[in-house]
Design a protein around this nucleic acid. Structure first.
Length: 896
RNA sequence: GGGAGUUUAGCUCAGCUGGUUCAGAGCAUCUGCCUUACAAGCAGAGGGUCGGGGGUUCGAACCCCUCAACUCCCA
């Protein structure tokens, strides 16, 4: 006995193991067309969240469909090493053991990092199996494994040799507690209540004259290089070219003019401190101002500050205010809210700090990457992201690629004692270079020191679509063979979040053109962000994200997958609601029960040798129309789904499948062919073999169609619905292809369903039990089409008899096109109510006829509109006229 | 400050090239049903000034202008 509700827990693990055992996800190059997706590598520290769930489900849908279409489908999995996140995890692990990073050498620390990675890293990859991800797991890569590491180093050396990489000073986000630079993404800005302090600077040579500036950082006045005013500002025109004196330290600085200064903020005078503010730094360069850095790495003041040396920046802030007050230079202090950056890791206030970093020149590299997105060689879905992409690529900044961390690819730059930089793949090659190019043969490796920094993690993931296909050199290693890069590159589709369109996608495109002369992928599908009901981004810290694995336990992987995709058009955010996965689960259950129904049927000729003759032939004819209709409906839907997929309308494709299965297959088709229940025997009547076979065939095709979305339940049913050999699977069954659509049967069934629906409506409105059969009369000039549908109408609408009449008949009526239908319900008719309804309908129809007539009598419409549009208008007019005539007749009849 | 996007039913969203009885779907709501596959279900119903205003057009949810609200990106 098959369970009444679908129980995914019992099924999912079984089939996933079966797929692995039979290597359905494995891909090696062959003569078939490849279909390739590389996974956006999640952090090795990551655990599965709702965003991954959405993103990877979409990838799985695409890959599974391609696999069923006979392509050599290859979905490469892997993780990236996530320098900062991983270092944080390792530092935490060490802290638990009472070890401090300070006390370790680089090599010791890295040994712990690998230990952490082996133990806890990549949990997410095993979680992906729970959602059914059909990755070729043998190909799983990691950005720090030797081959990928070397690729990063080679790339650095190559770009350096091409003159694209340079070392320069830049303002970075400095975390004085962690003593490292952090990227913009690791800075959390919060609004903070501060004091805006107004400070008077004396004008040099004019003891009684002052200029007042407003600042939230009074402790940095000692690093001031200038005071800037807007050149248009009348208040300060007399001071142009003069000098001001920094209070407390009495240093002279120039008063400069720049349009950058906002006249109505503060006093309209801006102190310029190039070493401690990014905007000021830019101003400093523009006006050639000196850079004076008064802070140590830990946020304390250094000797260049002249006063308060050794004090922390916040203590110094208070102290400076006090000193200014005493000196009479403090005009006032007012409350002021502003945004302050905090380190995601240490929560320390970020200090803009100048430091020596490595940069990649982007302008030239970005050109082909911009051009080929704008000309659609690479297509973004949805295309609205092209605008954003362009504005970024046209204003691209040089990429700061160094990070002050240990976990990552160490920058292959070696310094000679005099500071000369040698870039080479390793120390040995660096030494060779020194010896050959500089003829310094006495030099030894000990005379070279390697740069302490590592490369930005994106500097390895930008190579991902290429590096994952690099062979390891070991022929027994299944990761990648010697020809894999040629075979799989360029990949087909990339599925990722718009947030990293610049950080990652653009850079992959750049690397692709630089190293392969070709884009890394053809299509980029950008998913939305999964949000909670209040529209907040789901995050661990807010605790507003359900655990996807819990959801899978509750609703089944198929339920969660479809639930997520029901409402996720490309690029739009997905407001998550558990109702969605509930709907997904209900869909699974619906399919399951349809399967139970079909499985429960007994064959009419069971046990007989000569199947499907005589008696069977007659029934076959009866079911003939529903079969033809569903075939047509299936073909129409398949055509539409192909179109949806071609435009990456994944959600639309799913909804089409949902409706096809639930509404068309279950509610209509199955009900039409369902054998009657025999109350005498207490069993369902048997079904003829032809109908049964056709139904099984439909079911099988529907399962194949739904498989990319719902891999588990479709496999379970596919395996049960026919006898299968071991090693067969729906994973590699052919994806249904659309055939010709029989439009005429679709049209005639539309009428059929309309009749059924109208009869049911009358029954409902009059509160008549569905068990009571009602008589139906049809007033039509063409009874033919209805006669062929009679048995279906009777079955679906519970109609006792069908008569064709010339005159009006008793009872309630409804109109379809020009034909009038009567359901005779004795004593149930409220003539007034009927008159009212009929008048209303008539009024609407007349209005409708008017608007159609207006269109058709407009010469410009007939002349300008496409012929089929005009034809449709004429058809509408004809239908309306027939209806009006029937309604008028009806009014007369009722009035009698 | 610069740029982009969004605004359609109570909620979440479709509406693709301006033209079908085009104002849709799902959820939610309401009514009636435990009808021998499914109450995680079945059969029905109600619900909208397409953000406001103006314009182009034979015809506008769709194109243009303008105003408003919200969101994101860059600074």
């Amino acid at each position: 006995m098959i369970s009444k509700t679908y129980a995914p827990q019992e099924i999912e693990a079984k089939w996933y193991q079966y797929w692995l055992d039979n290597q359905f996800f494995k891909s090696t190059p062959d003569e078939r067309e490849p279909y390739t997706i590389v996974i956006p590598p999640p952090n090795v520290t990551g655990v599965l969240h709702m965003g991954h769930m959405l993103n990877n489900t979409i990838q799985d849908v695409l890959v599974r469909k391609a696999r069923m279409e006979g392509k050599n489908a290859c979905w490469v999995a892997g993780t990236d090493h996530a320098s900062i996140a991983t270092e944080a995890k390792v530092v935490a692990m060490l802290a638990e053991r009472g070890i401090s990073k300070k006390d370790l050498t680089r090599d010791e620390f890295l040994a712990y990092a690998w230990e952490w990675k082996e133990k806890y890293g990549g949990i997410i990859l095993s979680q992906l199996r729970k959602i059914g991800a059909s990755c070729d797991w043998d190909r799983t890569r990691f950005t720090m494994e030797p081959v990928l590491y070397d690729a990063v180093i080679d790339t650095f050396v190559d770009l350096y040799e091409k003159g694209k990489i340079y070392r320069g000073v830049r303002m970075v986000n400095w975390d004085p507690q962690g003593k490292t630079a952090v990227s913009d993404e690791e800075v959390i800005t919060k609004e903070v209540q501060q004091k805006l302090v107004y400070i008077r600077y004396a004008i040099a040579g004019q003891p009684n004259e002052f200029i007042t500036i407003a600042t939230v950082r009074p402790e940095t006045i000692m690093a001031d290089a200038a005071i800037a005013v807007n050149p248009e500002d009348e208040r300060y025109k007399h001071l142009h070219g003069k000098k001001a004196i920094i209070p407390l330290i009495d240093r002279e600085i120039p008063i400069i003019t720049d349009e950058y200064v906002t006249m109505d903020f503060g006093t309209g005078c801006l102190k310029v401190t190039p070493a401690h503010d990014p905007n000021d730094y830019a101003l400093g360069i523009k006006h050639n101002l000196p850079v004076l850095d008064i802070l140590n790495d830990d946020g304390t003041l250094n000797e260049k500050a002249q006063i308060l040396i050794g004090q922390d920046r916040f203590a110094a802030r208070k102290a400076v205010i006090k000193l200014l007050e005493e000196a009479g230079n403090l005009e006032k202090a007012e409350d002021y809210k502003s945004n302050v950056g905090f380190s995601e890791r240490t929560n320390a206030v970020i200090e803009p700090k100048l430091s020596l970093q490595w940069f990649l020149k982007m302008e030239e590299l970005a050109k082909p990457a911009l051009e080929n997105v704008m000309n659609d060689t690479i297509q973004l879905y949805p295309p609205k992201f092209k605008n954003m992409y362009r504005s970024w690529m046209e204003n691209v900044h040089d990429w700061c690629i160094s990070r002050q961390l240990w976990w990552g690819q160490r920058i292959p730059a070696f310094y000679m004692q005099d500071g000369t930089i040698i870039v080479a793949r390793n120390k040995h090659e660096a030494l060779e270079k020194v010896q050959h190019e500089k003829l310094l043969f006495a030099m030894t490796e000990a005379d070279l020191t390697q740069d302490e920094d590592v490369l930005d993690t994106w500097f390895s993931s930008w190579l991902w679509p290429m590096s994952v296909f690099l062979p390891s050199g070991d022929p027994s290693d299944p990761k990648a063979g010697p020809n894999d890069l040629d075979y799989y590159y360029p990949t087909n589709d990339l599925v990722t979040a718009p947030e990293i369109l610049f950080f990652w996608v653009a850079r992959m495109i750049i690397a692709g053109y630089e190293y392969k002369g070709e884009a890394p992928f053809k299509n980029v599908y950008l998913t939305g962000i999964v949000r909670d009901k209040q529209g907040r981004k789901m995050s661990k810290s807010l605790g507003n994200s359900p655990d996807p694995l819990d959801l899978i336990d509750q609703y089944g992987a198929d339920g969660v997958r479809t639930g997520m995709l029901f409402s996720s058009p490309a690029g739009n955010d997905l407001p998550f609601d558990e109702k969605l996965v509930e709907q997904g689960r209900n869909f699974s259950n619906k399919i399951w029960n349809a399967f139970r129904l079909v499985k429960g049927w007994t064959l009419e000729d069971a046990g007989k040798e000569d199947a499907g003759t005589e008696n069977g032939g007659e029934r076959e004819e009866k079911a003939d129309l529903p079969l033809k209709w569903f075939e047509a409906k299936l073909n129409a839907t398949l055509t539409q789904i192909e179109d949806d997929f071609s435009k990456f309308r994944i959600s639309d494709a799913l909804q089409a499948i949902y409706k096809l299965i639930w509404d068309d297959f279950c509610s209509q088709y199955l009900e039409l062919i369902k054998p009657a229940f025999d109350t005498a025997t207490g069993t369902a009547q048997p079904i003829d073999r032809a109908t049964y076979e056709a139904t099984i065939n439909f079911f099988e095709r529907l399962m194949c169609l739904a498989h990319p979305f719902m891999p588990f339940i479709t496999e379970e049913i596919w395996q049960e619905i026919r006898e299968r050999k071991h090693g067969e699977s729906i994973c590699v069954a052919p994806f249904p292809q659309p055939g010709a659509i029989d439009m005429s049967i679709l049209t005639s069934f539309e009428t059929l369903f309309e009749v059924i629906s109208n009869v049911r409506n009358i029954r409902n409105a009059k509160q008549i039990s569905p068990k009571t059969a009602l008589p139906l009369s049809i007033k039509t000039s063409q009874p033919g089409p209805f006669q062929t549908l009679e048995s279906l109408i009777q079955k679906m609408a519970n109609v006792s008899s069908i008569n064709y009449v010339d005159e009006k008949s008793g009872g309630l009526s409804f109109l379809i096109k020009g034909d009038e239908f009567f359901v005779d319900i004795a004593g149930e008719i409220d003539v007034e109510q009927e008159l009212e309804a009929t008048r209303k309908d008539l009024e609407y129809q007349i209005g409708f006829r008017e608007s159609t007539l207006k269109k058709l009598s407009n010469e410009r419409f007939v002349a300008n509109a496409k012929p089929d549009v005009v034809d449709r208008e004429r058809q509408k007019l004809a239908d309306a006229e027939a209806k009006i005539q029937a309604l008028e007749q009806r009014l007369q009849d009722l009035a009698l």
